[in-house]
Design a binder for these strands. Structure first.
Lengths: 169, 169
DNA sequence: TCCGGACCCTTGGACGTCCTAGTAGATTTC
DNA sequence: GAAATCTACTAGGACGTCCAAGGGTCCGGA
């Protein structure tokens, strides 16, 4: 999409903020912009690894979630809550995974409102291979040191808790 | 979209990874997933603040970039490079900003291939007000301490440089 | 009993992102 | 100078995300 720039555009933006009288918030602006860009880079790497499996990150996340669930099955609303995405995003992902034969929809045995999503055998196989690929090709070479990882987990855990994601300690 | 969960779903995922033999990469996985979620939270806050201005974050970023450029004008290819998004994303954003009267397209004086995007007076006014709103309502209350901000900037700068974003020190 | 509110899922639409392909203009190469 | 190669932008399409709206189901209080 274009080679490396000669200078860091986010550091430039931070300088611009400072020169225009917003020095107080220039640093948080730069940190937040850097998070946005980092997410974009990481998502690109992940999607590159998942493409051969016919998966996107959204679909992979659902497969991985199901593979850790009892019986490989969850209500769609539960998946929406755990993945922290809108219910319609789950509907979308399940539609495509179902078309690919990786999951199945089934009515809930006692609650007529809820739909259960269940991993098929093929889905469990694909989930396992995709996880192995992601682990060795992305997470094992994340580009962060162990200290960075430790620190990011701690700082972002606190941020997400304060943002209301969860009640945990 | 759903209230707080009782437990941190990312910490749970990390435990699942460890219990399934991927202990070596469980921490980087958790850090990367946390970056994804943090980006989602921050983007939501930003879009909430920009909505009253009829802007999205993508359009705001272009306006802000132009407001710092000489004459409020840049070639589209330059905007694409600095914002680090696909050229078609810039085409999309310019289409909508132009329809809103905030920017204008003009042919480059000497290079027939390139199109210049220029801020209108209205565009400059909206950019200024949107920046003030973002600074006071999002960046000044980022939810990160000064130390967190400092650390994030440093760690993510290194990550982005190693990822090939720029050549800077 | 039944009825209104809460919950679950889906449809349709808006947006941003990327990719592929195509056109037009510029530059390099021979 | 002409052909091959780059570069810049745009059209069309796939995908994920969200919101608003709608229909089915469940439950608790009158």
């Amino acid at each position: 999409m274009g080679g490396p720039l000669p200078r860091d555009p986010i550091a430039d933006a931070q300088r611009n903020w400072e020169q225009h009288g917003w020095g107080e918030v220039a640093a948080p602006m730069a940190a937040i912009t850097a998070i946005m860009r980092t997410q974009q880079i990481l998502l690109g790497r992940i999607e590159d690894v998942l493409r051969p499996f016919g998966l996107t990150f959204a679909r992979y996340e659902l497969l991985a979630l199901l593979s850790f669930a009892r019986d490989g099955s969850l209500p769609m609303s539960r998946a929406s809550a755990l993945l922290q995405v809108h219910p319609t995003s789950v509907t979308n992902a399940v539609d495509r995974l179902e078309a690919a034969g990786l999951v199945e929809r089934a009515p809930h045995p006692t609650d007529g409102r809820t739909t259960l999503v269940t991993l098929t055998d093929a889905g469990r196989r694909v989930a396992g291979r995709a996880t192995a690929a992601l682990n060795t090709e992305v997470f094992a070479r994340s580009g962060f040191t162990d200290d960075d990882v430790e620190h990011l987990i701690r700082v972002l855990h606190g941020f997400r808790r304060r943002a209301g994601d969860f009640l945990d300690p």
